[in-house]
Design a protein around this nucleic acid. Structure first.
Lengths: 352, 352
DNA sequence: TTGATTTATTGGAACGTTCCATTTATAGGC
DNA sequence: GCCTATAAATGGAACGTTCCAATAAATCAA
């Protein structure tokens, strides 16, 4: 019952009447030991309540089986979905990934990375915090620990990236809006220190140019990538002289904020102002109205990142190909046609 | 640039022209070494790109500084909030907690716990997966690892629990509904194999009895604790002969599902059917209509759990007091009066 | 100067594994 | 029976730390 000092491989060796080496072999499932012996040993392990000391083992083995996942914002359901995808593949490889949150704080991130390294992780999947210095991952690189960036990338870094095709996603979304007759468009939320932001905004701009929207008719408002940020963006936009009639949001959280702000002003998202999100989190489908959003196959990206990581570890390299995931626009109910265009054809009722 | 074999304490000793012991002392911030020596050593550490091997250290030190958090459903924002609270206090103690997800799967949970133990965690904060066998934590207990249950408890277990006052919360919510004139009440979602469920349902029932609601007028429908579950519950309820006019939901996710189902049927949550959630996740406030919910101070509970854990580790005990957190009902817009009652006083308009 | 005290530094033995090189037991070939 | 081949089990050294006991250097009291 009560536990004296922790049991070691020696204790169980004595218990089973074999040598420590034999126990070690059993622990590793070696085929060298006689089945009956193995059984005997396993019983002793059970009886004594032995717990394997991976730290000690790693001292010799050089490679642990711990993989860390460093996330910039645990409260964003998006990252939970990403984690779930990763876990699926790690689980089947017998690995338990450890998740750590940096809360979008580079200093905290530094601590987290340090701790993970000290723990002797075999590899790291990271969504870097905003404002991460390029140097932040130097230590990892020096130590030869495989690192994969998921969703976000750093300006100049040779770390492989698994991310969706942000440019294309934004392009599709903007084109959709324009196709619906909107002529004054906005891009809401995010900030320019994020590479993702550049990419999404780039796609948005390209669509506008290609489809003949004048530069002065596109409004870009940076802001927090949260509901609150979206709310602020919409308020700012509607305060302008000639406000936009549609917006592509940096992500779904921003879009939800925008819809909320519209409701507060007794405007109907979709009918009165079109909004498109990005990421297509599960809530998007369940919103009222359901949010049109760029689906990035989050869980799939997570799986992909995990696979790449596994391969890197296996081939003990620190390099790998980037992977840009396909995206597609999921059209739901959050963007009707521009009202001005809409009034010309048959008058459709008001309530959605 | 390229990294040869990992640098050890010996390498940096040679580099700095001191002994390994001195380096070790510096690493631990001992006051015994001369400041200038310490500086010299620290420089060498930097130059060589040394990373501390905590596994090796733990071999001697017996106590690591790793704390694990085992969560049953990472995709529920509720748990992210809990984690954030914990992280706040661990961070100030210089500890990086590792989070692992069990996805509500007892088998996976077993693996996760095993892995964490092997890693030599100093303590574990756990929200056990549904269907966890009481024996699942025996090993931990045998090994003397401090464990705290957060939010959920196991039927018979001496592990300290940090949880909200579920009974009281449910009581308050039900009383609120009854006070609004509702006479046919439902309890939606959750399943009876969860202790939390028993507690919440108990509070609900007590309120009904106390306030004179006949037993045959209270409807209990178990279901998934997710949006989807809520949807199903509402459908089932409305299909009955004399459907309820209000529901307390097991948690906010269920409540969101219920509201969604109402909308699908062109019913207005609040006006046509009252719904109350439980947990008061951040989204509750931002829903349309804003969800009345039982606030449990999730982050506060997380902080509390972390503090208890720290204290247990410090006093090397495996026992601690339970902590039942205060709750309060946050009234928003998701529950108007019973329609029948409402028609009697002055006619208030329809739209909320 | 000498010894006692304090201050800095150091060597060596653990810690719990793995893995290589051996040893011991078992079987096979002749 | 003896030698060899195969199978099964073992002892010892190593892994990178910590910590104790011991040493070396500096300071002080006489």
């Amino acid at each position: 019952m009560a536990s004296r000092a922790k049991a070691t491989i020696f204790d169980i060796a004595r218990e089973a009447g074999v040598s420590k080496s034999t126990v070690s072999l059993v622990l590793q499932g070696s085929g060298l030991i006689r089945p009956e012996t193995a059984v005997k040993v396993r019983k002793a392990i059970e009886d004594v309540g032995y717990v394997y000391n991976r730290g000690a083992a790693n001292l010799r083995k050089a490679h642990s089986n711990v993989i860390g996942m460093v996330i910039n914002d645990l409260t964003n359901p998006f990252f939970a979905e990403l984690a779930v995808g990763m876990e699926r593949v790690f689980q089947s490889a017998g690995i338990v990934p450890f998740i750590a949150n940096t809360a979008e704080n580079p200093v905290r991130q530094e601590e987290v990375l340090k701790s993970l390294m000290e723990q002797g992780v075999a590899g790291l999947i990271v969504s870097p915090a905003r404002g991460t210095m390029p140097s932040a991952f130097r230590r990892l690189e020096m130590a030869g620990v495989p690192v994969v960036f998921a969703m976000r990338r750093l300006p100049e870094s040779r770390v492989p990236v698994i991310a969706p095709d942000n440019h294309r996603g934004a392009y599709l979304a903007a084109a959709h809006l324009i196709g619906k007759g909107h002529r004054r468009l906005a891009f809401f939320g995010g900030s320019s220190d994020l590479v993702v932001y550049q990419e999404r905004l780039g796609g948005f701009r390209e669509a506008c140019e290609t489809q003949g929207i004048a530069a002065r008719d596109v409004l870009v408002i940076e802001g927090e990538t949260s509901r609150r940020g979206g709310l602020a963006c919409l308020e700012a936009a509607l305060a302008m002289a000639e406000p936009p009639t549609a917006a592509l949001c940096f992500n779904d959280a921003v879009a939800f904020g925008v819809m909320l702000a519209l409701r507060k002003r007794r405007l109907e998202p979709g009918a009165d102002f079109a909004v498109v999100g990005f990421d297509d989190v599960v809530e998007a489908e369940h919103y009222m109205p359901a949010l049109t959003s760029v689906a990035v196959d989050t869980a799939g990206l997570g799986e992909r990142a995990a696979h790449v990581m596994l391969k890197m570890i296996q081939s003990r390299t620190t390099r790998a190909e980037d992977h840009i995931g396909a995206v597609n626009l999921v059209v739901r109910e959050s963007c009707g046609p521009d009202r001005r265009t809409r009034n010309r054809p048959a008058g459709t009722g008001g309530a959605a």
